[in-house]
Write a protein that binds this DNA or RNA. Sequence first.
RNA 1: GCGAAGUUGGUGAAGUGGUUAACACGCCGGAUUGUGGCUCCGGUAUGCGUGGGUUCGAUUCCCACACUUCGCC
Length: 373
Amino acid sequence: MKVKYNLIHEEKNTQARLGKIETNYGTYDTPMFMPVGTQATVKTLSPEELKDVNSGIILSNTYHLWLRPGENVVDHAGGLHKFMNWDGPILTDSGGYQVFSLAKPKDITEEGVYFKNHLNGDRLFLTPEKSIEIQNKLDSDIAMSFDECPPASADHQYMKESVERTLRWAARGKAVHNNERQSLFGIIQGGPYEDLRKFSAIETVKLDFDGYSIGGVANDDESKDDMYKAIEYSVPYIPKDKTRYLMGVGEPIDIIEGVIRGIDIFDCVLPTRLARHGHAFTHSGKINLKNAKYKEDFSPIDDECDCYACKHYTKAYIKHLINSEETFGARLLSIHNIRFLIKMTEDIREAIKNDELLEYRKKFVKEYYHEDI
RNA sequence: GCGAAGUUGGUGAAGUGGUUAACACGCCGGAUUGUGGCUCCGGUAUGCGUGGGUUCGAUUCCCACACUUCGCC
């Protein structure tokens, strides 16, 4: 089946909305945060642990699975769900982000994109059709269109050409998409430019996808203000009965600001990457467990957290694991950080239900950033 | 007791008669937003065993002493 978005409630004071998304593997509440499992695993977590933190959809990656183990291996295994023993929904990114992270501008052609294989340096060529074919074989629940994700600093002229090319790629991908069980989402681009976001949104919606995402945000050269504007410029043109996905965003405040502007789902590597580097989200701010002050801190990471790590382990112990490069430390912190963001979305849903999202933001910012807004 | 070699930061160590003593690890911080990277970026010896001497100038040369290691009685 195709994913179906059901609107439950629109928050009174903002664009935020409460919804349910129906998938092949169950129905899930939105706004939602999707943990990232690039290589068919959310780094360091077992599927059971993902369930424990109340994960809904998880994200995996076309580019990486294409290179290794290859889409045919996953296909022969019976699809990505069976291959990785995950019976929840899976969204696959198209490889479009790797256009941004691995290719050079001159490698982008109308036909597709040349990549340098990060594993062995081989020259690779990925097209919109190829990306969709791979995703069909991976048999994820939601496939993403193959797009170009230009830096926010790209000038208007380049961005315009890029947006138009991404639209042509979206149409080409949709034309070859051939998996009844799999939905296909379109991606709105346009950087910080209002006219281009509007154009991209309207034209992408015309192609009629099962859901829409806003891409090209949270690049390192983009200000928060530009990111929020990019959302505001795009959302009004997305039909209300379709899922709105803000790609790559996962800093706590950005999730809140995204929801306020009408976003339903988010994904981000931040919780797992920060975990591997020893950082933890807490209700009173981000902390670095490598800091010497935690050496004999025998309290949990966050005394308000209900995760496995916080229930059973201390900062001092986890710090020791991180300092000793023991993988259990990264695992405990990943569990915690993912749970933190998912718990946040649970609280956000409650706030939307009560039309108190702005109050929630005020309280969160006060506690997390120690600032008044 | 005799002989030899050596003594540079928390550690392993480079190095030079003359601006800020290399590098690595560790330690102390920071970064991280559709994940190539257990990654990246900073900081970290006011001093080169101790005391004298030579020299315009010594961590670098000389002497003595202490300590360490090895070998021989």
